[in-house]
Nucleic acid binder design. Sequence first.
DNA 1: TTGTATTTTCAATCATTTTTGAAATACCTT
DNA 2: AAGGTATTTCAAAAATGATTGAAAATACAA
Lengths: 174, 174
Amino acid sequence: MQLEEAKEKFIQAWGALGSNWGINRTMAQVHALLLISPNSLSAQEVMDALNISRGNANMNLRALIDWGLVSKEHKAGDRKEYFFAEKDIWQVAQQVIIERRKRELKPVLKILEDLKTMEGDQKDEEVKAFVESVENIHNIVGQADKFLEIAIKADRNWFFGALIKMFSRKSKQE
Amino acid sequence: MQLEEAKEKFIQAWGALGSNWGINRTMAQVHALLLISPNSLSAQEVMDALNISRGNANMNLRALIDWGLVSKEHKAGDRKEYFFAEKDIWQVAQQVIIERRKRELKPVLKILEDLKTMEGDQKDEEVKAFVESVENIHNIVGQADKFLEIAIKADRNWFFGALIKMFSRKSKQE
DNA sequence: TTGTATTTTCAATCATTTTTGAAATACCTT
DNA sequence: AAGGTATTTCAAAAATGATTGAAAATACAA
């Protein structure tokens, strides 16, 4: 397999992964392209590499900047903007967690909290069962949220060290 | 807020959550409906509750069964099938992890492994940089995969206990 | 077996999301 | 300020994904 072919494969895989997780496929592809690009790219270069229109490239580059995954720079004597991605993959993961937590986890937690407290008539069995369900779900989503909060504050080495410890203790237990 | 209104809110929220994470919105809504339903429901009842067609209900119920989140039963003297969801939310989470790992994480890992090994010409600086990028990504995705593997084997109490310990150690460190 | 209730399938339709491309805007440089 | 890039916007078009509904298949009971 040649380099170009491998890059293409990587971009496709990253795009599919994003798509499966509710991220615009093209946005993920642009991200992939910049992740493996040794130097920063102009909008035109992104358009050419992925065969997408100027508008599309612009929208997705801006979205990536919004997500904190991509930045732009200017080159001396050149009017164009050049884009590059954060390469440290642990930082990328943290940034993705930060954004998804903010955009999708927090709103759900808020709704679950509302639902938990709203219903006063605890005598009704059906109400009781519903509130209990919601409490259980809120509980586990809250735990996941706390865990992710640790992850985004954690140093990579500490974090994986802690996970490995967790794993080894588990093994002993079995 | 009345019970019916609260249920409706919950179903909408669960549907939106699924949709944001690449799960068919209706499938997530059907799941939500069954999660908070005290008794099992026929296809007809699901159709009526969510205002969806028979075909749609059938497809999504079958998908949920496929995911291991819903089962069906028969009632004496009734020809219809009745559907009910696994209520233990930790089990639900584990099942979701199992499926997404199988469907989406494993294939990506496979591709990353292929890309890592495929390129022999290590003298070329560009090739070297690419392989290094891929290795880093493979590394972190692999770690995530291992962690999820622990989660799906773990007892709920042990798992959250371990997370809390992790958290408290982190706090001391700071 | 026959008739009836129920489930499944899937081509056609509908809805949503994504993309395009050209006009408008912003940005430089002189 | 003018002239030439480059970027942004957004209505319309295209592509994709979801839903319908009716026909076919299946399951059951008598």
